[in-house]
Every structure is written in structure tokens, then in C-alpha cells.
Design a protein around this nucleic acid. Structure first.
Length: 422
RNA sequence: GGUGACGUGUCCGAGCGGCCGAAGGAGCAUGUCUCGAAAACAUGUGAUGGUUUGCGCCAUCCGUGGGUUCAAAUCCCACCGUCACCGCCA
């Protein structure tokens, strides 16, 4: 939810943001107007209510035998007040709806346009050149007896899989490496619920454009989360945080993630690139709005360090406004080179949601002057199951073995090469 | 799944349908005292929205949402949650 004060005082800033996203400018005008209607409705109701309150005191002070006449008068006033209140509730609802239809105001510098209009921030490391025909990650994984898609399909259907042996160990190693990285940077580990109530899903903004991506448990009216961001964002909902004295709150969420991949059709049907269930270590930060941009750079930095340390070549892109989720004001993706696809694929994503998400969830902090104000929230991936694909493909050898990147070895009991079993 | 008890401010904890944003404690802040601290004493100490140049004023909020009433923290209903016991259980 955008800041209503910004909308009222600087609607042009909001219009410019909507334009960059390729979204409705008319929504801004509607919201501005709804705000005016809302405020006059509030004033009208409150005037009546004040009158009613004052009258109530008179009634209370009147001797019992004289009350009847006054009560008759009060009934009329009560009816009018009730009507004005209904009008106010209606006006609030309209304004709220209009406000929610507007996406977060983008950060200055975010490229205008859609999915294709990203800006390449940098490219790090050259794609590996092979002197043999590289196998794709699933072929490698099968020879290592590390990935079993067939049995995944037998048990659960398409896009499900078993990670087995070194495959299972590799994922745990990756997650543990990421957790240690997070710990070293002051993050608090949090293993989150993966089933959440509807209002939490709504509040975190995931029931909007992506609602058909989400699994829902009808019998219990709960949703399976596609990322621990949902639980992490809602963790401090309706709380007032101390960020000024204690600094930013950084959480490292460890969870399994579930996605329906409804619109994916036949895309990435092979292997573990796009699956219904995977694990992820997610960074999530609550900080002050003026620190948000610097924190965003830090999150990106930690992601790059992780990917770089695993010997992957990658590039960083600054996502265009039209390709941002409604909550994000800016988003950077780090994409790693996938040799058999001849392209870069997203391994991490980090979003600066400024105060948008926090405003909807009621997460505030105490400013130096003692007032309360919406916090800024940021999130970013630090490891996911998908990384295994990039690692296997990048570090494969002609004989089908895979060299384990240095940082992962201690998490694999010193294992430095994964050897094929067939 | 069943039965029972309960949900009030940062915390504990009172609260007759009207004078209750809410007693009393604790905590916290400031001041007096002190060389300094502790103690003691005094004062202050919620959020949201509207309005105002400003001081301020007004409205709303006692788990959530409805209802009854001129008037609800207080009465009624539903839901959510917590605790206890019983049952069941990977």
C-alpha cells in the first residue's frame, strides 16, 4: 500500500511511477478523489457522533422520570449518526480499494518498461568453455544417482523429484553454507511456517497477480507459501519495532517452498529448474526507510559473494518497472550461466519493498522523535535447490564426475569430487 | 475431536450499561535530592484517523467481526487465539 500522504501531496510522483510500470494513471486520479470523499465523510460522521456523545451525557445526568422525552430525541440523532457512519465505512472501503490498486512507487533509476527492458548491471566471470560435450544437470544428476525425477513423478506427479545421496547432501550443504553466510552478517535464523492464513497471504501481497501460483488447502482454509518471505514479512505485523537504537532486524528464513507453476506450461519441464517444491534460504530485513537502498545493495552483495564463491559465472540485472511485483520498488536478479542452455538463469532475486509491504501489514518503528512510522522491508534469496543445476553443469568433467566447489566441501565431509555410479 | 476457564495499555491487574482511554501496581522518561548512584518523592508516559499555521480540539480503538441499546470494556451471537483436562495420533 502506498503512502496516502504522498498520494495526496504529490500525486504526480505516483503517476510517473505508474507510467513507468505501464499501469493505470487513472487509478491515481480515482484514489485522489476517493481520498477527498473519504475525508469529508469522516468529518460529517464525526460531527454527528460528537453531538450524540454530548447528548448522551445530558441524558445520563437527567433524573429518571424526565429521561423518556430526551430518549425520543436521541433516537433520531442516533439514526442519522448511524447513516453517516455507514457512509464513512463505505468511503473508507472505496479509498482502500483504490489505494491498493496502485503499485509501489519505484525507486529513482529503475528502468521503464516490461520484462525485456531490464538493464544489465554487470557480468562477472566468463561462461566456461568445454572441450567435451557437456551434459545437462539432470543427466549428470542421474549418473550421480543424485536426482530421481521418475520416482518423483510416480509418487507426486510432474515437477516433483527425489534428491538422493549426494544430491540430498548437496542441497543441505548449500543451505548450510548460506545459513552460515547469513549468520556471519548478523541474520537471525528462522524456520518458518509454510502454511498461512488467507489474511496473511493477502497482506503480503501474494494473492494479487500471482494467486493462481499458490496452493490452497480448501479443507483448512490455509495457503502453502511459495517463499518464506510470506511468514517473515508477517512475523512482525501490527508491531512497533525498535530500529533506531538496535539497528535493522535481519532474518534468515529456512523453508520449503511450494508453487503451482500454473502458467509455465511445458517450460523447463526437464530437471529441477522449475519444480513445485524446493528449499530456500531467504534473507529478510526490516529497516528504516532511509537505510533501505543501502541495505538493498548489501543484500545484492551477499548474493554475489555466494554465487561467486561457488565458481559460477553470473550477471546482475536491474529489473524494469513493469516486471516488478506490486510490492517492489526495485528488484535485482542475479542470474548464473547454465552451460547446456547457453543462457543465464535466475538464481536469486532481491527486492526493496520500501514501506509498501510494511504499511499493509502494520509494521512500524519508533522514530527518534518518538513518533511511529512505517518500516522498510527487503528480501533476497541466499540459496535454493535450483542452484544445484548450475553447480552440476558448470563443474562437470568429461568422465561424468563433478568437482565440488571449495566452500561446500566442509559441508560434505570433505568430499571434493562427486563420482558417477553408472 | 470433547469439556471447562480465559483474552483489558510495554507488562501485571481492577473494572456497577452512562461521570471509563479506562483504577492500582510495575516498567520507562524527566525533575528534586546526591560527589555520583540507589532509595524516596513529584510529574509525565498508547495507537490510528480527521481538523488546525500552531497550542489544541474532535472521533475511533479494551482479541476480531456482527447485534441489542438513546448509550457497550461491561449484555447477546459468531469467529480467532491461549491455558487445563479427557480422547485420538506418523
Amino acid at each position: 500500500m502506498i503512502d496516502p500522504v504522498l498520494l495526496r501531496e504529490n500525486p504526480d510522483v505516483v503517476r510517473a511511477s505508474q507510467a513507468a510500470r505501464g499501469e493505470s494513471l487513472e487509478a491515481v486520479d480515482r484514489a485522489v478523489e476517493a481520498d477527498a470523499v473519504r475525508r469529508s465523510a469522516i468529518a460529517a460522521f464525526e460531527a454527528l457522533r460528537a453531538e450524540q456523545n454530548a447528548f448522551g451525557k445530558v441524558v445520563a445526568a437527567t433524573p429518571k422520570d424526565e429521561k423518556a422525552a430526551l430518549v425520543a430525541q436521541a433516537q433520531d440523532l442516533a439514526a442519522r449518526t448511524k447513516q453517516a457512519q455507514a457512509a464513512q465505512v463505505e468511503a473508507e472501503a472505496r479509498f482502500d480499494e483504490a489505494l491498493r490498486s496502485i503499485g509501489n512507487v519505484i525507486v529513482d533509476g529503475v528502468p521503464t518498461g516490461g520484462e525485456e527492458d531490464y538493464v544489465l548491471v554487470k557480468t562477472v566471470g566468463a561462461p566456461r568453455v568445454f572441450d567435451f560435450e557437456p551434459l545437462d544437470h539432470l543427466a549428470i544428476g542421474e549418473r550421480l544417482d543424485a536426482i530421481d525425477m521418475a520416482r518423483g513423478a510416480k509418487v507426486s506427479g510432474a515437477r516433483f523429484y527425489f534428491l538422493k545421496g549426494v544430491g540430498a547432501r548437496l542441497e543441505i550443504a548449500l543451505m548450510s553454507l548460506a545459513l552460515d553466510k547469513a549468520l556471519a552478517n548478523g541474520f537471525i535464523p528462522l524456520i518458518t511456517p509454510t502454511l498461512v492464513r488467507p489474511e496473511i497471504m493477502q497482506g503480503t501481497g501474494f494473492l494479487g497477480a500471482h494467486s493462481d501460483e499458490i496452493y490452497r488447502l480448501e479443507a483448512d482454509d490455509l495457503y502453502l507459501t511459495g517463499t518464506s518471505e510470506v511468514a517473515l514479512a508477517a512475523y512482525h505485523s501490527d508491531e512497533i519495532l525498535d530500529l533506531v537504537e538496535s539497528g535493522p532486524l535481519r532474518y534468515a528464513g529456512w523453508s520449503t517452498c511450494y508453487r503451482r507453476e500454473a502458467g509455465a506450461g511445458g517450460k523447463d519441464s526437464r530437471g529441477i529448474i522449475r519444480v513445485h517444491q524446493f528449499n530456500k534460504l531467504e534473507m529478510f530485513v526490516y529497516t528504516t526507510p532511509d537505510e533501505a537502498q543501502a541495505e538493498h545493495e548489501r543484500l545484492l552483495g551477499w548474493q554475489e559473494e555466494m554465487i561467486g564463491s561457488l565458481g559460477l559465472s553470473y550477471r546482475v540485472i536491474d529489473t524494469a518497472a513493469g516486471d516488478l511485483g506490486s510490492s517492489a520498488a526495485r528488484k535485482f536478479d542475479v542470474e548464473a550461466w547454465i552451460p547446456t542452455q547457453g543462457t543465464y538463469r535466475e538464481l536469486t532475486s532481491t527486492s526493496n519493498c520500501t514501506t509498501f509491504q510494511a504499511r499493509r501489514l502494520g509494521v512500524r518503528y519508533r522514530t527518534e522523535s518518538g513518533a511511529t512510522s512505517a518500516v522498510a522491508t527487503l528480501n533476497g534469496t541466499l540459496a535454493t535447490t535450483r542452484w544445484i543445476a548450475a553447480i552440476l553443469e558448470t563443474h562437470q568433467q568429461a568422465d561424468g564426475s563433478v568437482v565440488v566447489p571449495g566452500p561446500l566441501r566442509s559441508y560434505l565431509g570433505g568430499l571434493d569430487v562427486l563420482v558417477p555410479v553408472r
